[in-house]
Design a binder for these strands. Structure first.
Lengths: 176, 176
DNA sequence: CCTACCGATCGGTAGG
DNA sequence: CCTACCGATCGGTAGG
């Protein structure tokens, strides 16, 4: 991927994370990247098309280079949980959640991308739990992700990260 | 409260819930209420001032008329959890969460109102748990709310309400 | 509670 | 990759 393309997607992620879909401005994005707004449209046909790119990058960064769960599924699980925890703590909001709340039927491709993102993440989590013989891995994965996502409400409102840390700790205890 | 005022606040809640703070349009709100946009400004000085009203109404509806926890704290707890569950299932999103993600330092009064809303709800929950002798009631209340809020990510992305139902069931089990 | 308007900004395009 | 522009819509106000 060309560095400029990657930079656009990385900055678009920050804009979506902070302002949501509707609130994200292409002018703001252009300024951050150091381009004029019109130049963004030589790379991407429209604002909506940024959403799949942002979420694909995020998913890739979250799961790439994880230890092989066939060797040590506990380590894989704890590494994955730790990555999600770290990102949410550093960035305060989850870009996926902000987009999930912000995309509607007016932006069907963005909507589909958000659905895919969470489904893929849950499936990756469930796959690890399955190797560990954890019962009902899909439900456990969904609930674990919900607990982590929900904890961000305390970070955004009061800066309190302890609910997130408890959520991550409790998740790691699944693999004991 | 005058019926028109109440109607504006109720509809504003739907607009904020669906579109978030930035995405909410005063024109859209006016149309839903059956007024011209300018007429909204005879009731409210600006868009930001709607946020405290919306959240105060929501908090009131959530906690008003709960059974007295001094009589039967388990019943009070389960009733409260049931109300939150029902609202999130019917409306699909939590207006408080969407606002929490959407308000920034540019809208300090709205920000403060969101913080107060979640703090008050958590405190109400913790108070009930305290009467039941549940250890660490503040943390349990915060985590319970996080789990319920986080479950909405599955409702918005795939329509799946089972994580929300599991969250509510698990919360009710605290009072057994 | 309305009509009519303000300047600013939105996503997106024409044309080079 | 830019300048310059499009129509639409934004939050908010003047004035009655």
């Amino acid at each position: 991927m060309k560095t400029t393309l990657r930079k656009i997607v990385t900055e678009a992620r920050e804009v979506f994370r902070e302002h949501g879909y509707d609130g994200a401005s292409m002018q703001d994005l252009a300024s951050r990247v150091g381009l004029k707004k019109a130049s963004l449209y030589t790379r991407f046909p429209n604002k909506e098309s940024l959403v799949p790119e942002v979420l694909a990058l995020t998913l890739e960064e979250t799961v790439q280079g994880l230890p092989d769960p066939n060797d040590d599924w506990q380590l894989t699980w704890q590494t994955l949980i730790g990555r999600i925890e770290k990102t949410l703590e550093e960035r305060q909001r989850c870009v996926g959640l902000h987009l999930a709340y912000g995309v509607t039927s007016a932006t069907p491709e963005a909507r589909a991308a958000v659905c895919q993102f969470f489904t893929a993440l849950r499936e990756k989590m469930a796959q690890i739990l399955r190797l560990g013989g954890i019962p009902d891995p899909d439900a456990v994965a969904a609930d674990t992700l919900a607990q982590l996502e929900g904890a961000t409400v305390w970070i955004t409102t009061s800066g309190d990260v302890t609910p997130l840390h408890r959520a991550a700790e409790s998740a790691c205890r699944i693999a004991d």
